[in-house]
Write a protein that binds this DNA or RNA. Structure first.
Lengths: 345, 345
DNA sequence: TTGTATGCGTTATCAC
DNA sequence: GTGATAACGCATACAA
């Protein structure tokens, strides 16, 4: 005896209703939890039938009937990347708490791909589209993407940006400047006097703010950081590693600290220094930014600026779902976490 | 002048058809690419109207009407984890190539969550559900999960397992034993004689195969690895770190190599050794398994066994979509990659 | 409380 | 080639 009413196809609500001997509406009311109450006898029978058939509600049909989905779309730069994985994980957790499914899309940091994705995702009629800073398009996003998002917004969608300020939408931003400034103050207190800064070769506002904040922190102690000591390796691990491994001896000789604008870069730098045979943190301390869990636990544990991703994610989900009047612009604070990679000098 | 025909709601195909002055059927034919041809004049007008309205096809409605979606569901152990991120990225890439969207769900390695997810995902009517080895439930999965998946399969779905053999479904498996065996042979050739093995404290078949393969490789050279030299730290980074950092001196004294069943564990071990002040690879070499890109580039670069995730992903997508007759059981080969973390002795 | 009827946005089957 | 019309699976306003 086979269980499914119609061979090879998933059971539908009609199948359940028929087996339970009730109308489809009644079946619908018990499986979805409508406002209306259903007689306990019927309720039992429907539930039993559903279980017996192995019924699972067709989400697409529900979305069509309801005219709205329980999804949000997340466009991220890449999931193999430690920063974006952590961010994605945080957002999925936050979304799960309020029973929102996340449609994940990866732009691989290509603007044209981003446009395609926005188009595609719009078709899923998500409650909101969240774009997590891709790290490439911060200052020069495609106008077509903006237009597409604007359309989406005009037709009832919500757009939330995380750590990017290149488009006029709700933005969750964290305090890059202040976190870096406070880190710099800590570093000065620990005796560091001559930092080398690793920025980004891309014109990213968030990264520049970290440079500026750090510079400001040292300036408070009367220490100026000349532009020549701000280096701009390629955006990734290997760029930083190579830059440090091949840097002029005399530049390095006078440095006692490397501050990189991301943890990934900091680790690249750390490895570049090691390859070169320079003892860290013995001769040169290393500090990063982001405080990604999977990255900071190296030897020596990495000093960094903590970005509370859970908070960022919660704020993003809030902006994605809350009533407009509940939205106040808020910058998430960050704070330095000093670890063994920057021992007192 | 506002563009949308109906204020605040996404434009529908009817809106497009109306604006273009054609029937809904014709509009449908041009926007989706049906078999039927459409007159070029009409075609242009429909496209124009769609562009003007910023039309995006409602995916859910398409899925309902077509009776099938263009999605596959992926259940993975966690995205903040380097191994699973890499796997997820590979699968999303492979899926993208054949225009399949991936619904990502994270089980956080909890079996009961896995059951919930299968239930939920079934509702999306995906073409297939892929479960990437969670690393926890390999040998003792929940019967309820299996039953649920069986139901899904009976009603036309496809189930694909990656690196787990606990349930009777299509499985993509890679050659843990042979990869580890060949790595062991290489290590012997490089002069290593007394390895310490880091397994898993969980009864995972794949992990045991790596231990067995490595042991077999040494056995070929006449070197037996006594059970006492097979350690089982917690499954993660920190477990391995702590174990190595606190291991008895005499156990360590006689060892010249640490082989861990995953790269994550290997890095934990590497850091544990460093904390302890033991020089690597000078005094003790370190090798892992998986060859995760984001993990291997440390100092020293990590010797590992390469698992071709792109191939694994392609195979999984193939099994998820190909006709049943095209399926032949195939084990993906792996191969050792020797790097600086295991210099010749 | 329950059932009937209608609608959601789309595709597919049919005549034209 | 094009356009009515009937599905698809589900939710809901309304009638009973």
């Amino acid at each position: 005896m086979t269980l499914d009413a119609r061979g090879g196809r998933p059971p539908t609500l009609s199948d359940v209703a028929r087996l339970a001997g009730v109308s489809q509406s009644t079946a619908s009311r018990v499986v979805n939890g409508s406002a209306r109450r259903v007689d306990d006898g019927y309720r039992e029978r429907v539930l039993g039938a559903a279980r017996q058939l192995g019924y699972a509600p067709n989400i697409a049909a529900q979305a069509v009937a309801r005219g709205a989905s329980h999804r949000i779309a997340l466009i991220t730069g890449g999931i193999a990347d430690a920063y974006f994985s952590a961010m994605t994980a945080a957002i999925m957790n936050a979304a799960e708490e309020i029973d929102l499914r996340v449609s994940l899309a990866v732009s691989s940091r290509r603007t044209e791909r981003e446009l395609e994705l926005v188009r595609e995702l719009r078709g899923e009629q998500p409650r909101a589209i969240i774009l997590a800073g891709t790290g490439y398009t911060d200052s020069r996003s495609d106008p077509a993407v903006e237009a597409e998002l604007l359309r989406y917004q005009e037709t009832g969608g919500r757009v939330v940006l995380i750590s990017r300020t290149d488009m006029p939408f709700e933005t969750v931003y964290f305090d890059n400047f202040e976190g870096a400034r406070r880190l710099a103050v800590e570093m000065v207190a620990r005796g560091y006097r001559s930092p080398l800064l690793l920025g980004s070769d891309l014109p990213l506002r968030s990264m520049q703010e970290r440079i500026d904040g750090f510079t400001a922190g040292f300036a408070e102690a009367g220490i100026a950081i000349p532009p020549s000591r701000v280096l701009r390796p390629g955006f990734h691990w290997d760029g930083a590693r190579e830059l440090l491994a091949t840097l002029d001896d005399d530049v390095l000789a006078s440095a006692d600290l490397v501050f990189a604008v991301t943890d990934v870069l900091a680790l690249g730098a750390l490895n570049g220094l090691r390859e070169r045979g320079i003892e860290t943190p013995g001769r040169i301390g290393v500090a990063g930014f982001d405080d990604i869990t999977t990255l900071r636990d190296v030897v020596p544990p990495l000093t960094s600026v903590h970005v509370p991703l859970d908070e960022v994610a919660a704020e993003a989900i809030h902006r994605a779902t809350a009533a407009p009047e509940d939205l106040r612009r808020r910058v998430i604070p960050t704070h330095p976490v000093v670890r063994a990679s920057t021992p007192p000098r």
